[in-house]
Computed example of a mutant assay.
Amino acid sequence: MAREIDYGNLMHDAMRGLIRKVLDDVAENGLPGAHHFFISFDTRHPGVKLADWLAERYPKDMTIVLQHWFEDLEVDDDGFSVTLNFGDSPERLHVPFDAIRTFVDPSVEFGLRFEATEDELDEEGDAQVEPDEAEEAPASHADAEIVPLDKFRK
């Protein structure tokens, strides 16, 4: 079998590296201007850590918002940890970068979506992980456009 360059995985690694750099900067300097993020992730992914009641409420996926109230954002090579407020109940969670499904900054209409791999497809061919919009997410999320990379191919 001939060796091939796996451009899809290379692109996903590069996009996750971009997210890491952005979150590193926010951890160091705070959110600039009107920037804020909607981050959806697979709650079943190995390495995701969240309170049991959150895992029960979001058994497949979850969208978090980093905007007005978040604390102790820490970023490492594998993912990020942050404390968020869920109905006046602060909860710490950890999200590996590989668990991220979408990353959106609606303030500048920027978004990334990670396509499901073959392992994540069920027998019907549908992705098992479809991002749910968390109740904490403001309506402006719907206004942001997630641009697939195919849009830029010739």
Rank of each mutant, 00 (worst) to 15 (best):
M1P: 13
A2E: 11
E4D: 06
E4V: 14
I5Y: 02
D6L: 04
Y7N: 06
N9C: 01
L10F: 05
D13N: 05
D13V: 05
A14R: 05
M15V: 07
R16K: 09
G17T: 06
I19A: 01
R20K: 15
L23V: 09
L23G: 05
D24A: 07
D25T: 12
D25P: 01
A27N: 09
A27W: 08
A27C: 11
N29C: 10
N29G: 09
L31F: 07
H36T: 05
H36F: 07
F38N: 05
I39L: 07
S40G: 07
F41C: 09
D42H: 03
H45Y: 15
H45T: 13
K49Y: 08
D52L: 06
D52G: 07
W53T: 13
L54H: 05
E56G: 02
R57A: 15
K60V: 15
D61V: 13
M62K: 04
T63N: 03
I64P: 02
I64M: 03
L66G: 06
Q67K: 13
Q67N: 09
E71D: 15
E71F: 10
D72E: 15
L73C: 08
E74P: 07
V75A: 05
D77L: 09
D78F: 10
D78K: 12
G79S: 10
F80T: 08
S81A: 15
T83R: 09
L84N: 08
N85P: 03
G87S: 14
D88G: 04
S89Q: 11
P90K: 06
P90F: 08
L93H: 04
H94S: 14
H94C: 12
V95W: 01
I100T: 08
T102P: 00
F103L: 02
V104T: 04
D105R: 00
P106F: 01
V108T: 11
L112M: 11
A116S: 15
T117I: 08
T117E: 11
E120R: 03
E120M: 10
L121I: 14
D122L: 08
G125S: 11
G125W: 09
D126K: 14
E133N: 01
A134Q: 03
A134M: 02
E135C: 01
A137C: 15
P138E: 08
H141N: 03
A142M: 01
D143Y: 00
D143R: 00
D143W: 00
E145I: 13
E145S: 01
E145H: 03
E145F: 01
P148E: 07
F152K: 02
R153E: 11
K154H: 10
K154Y: 10
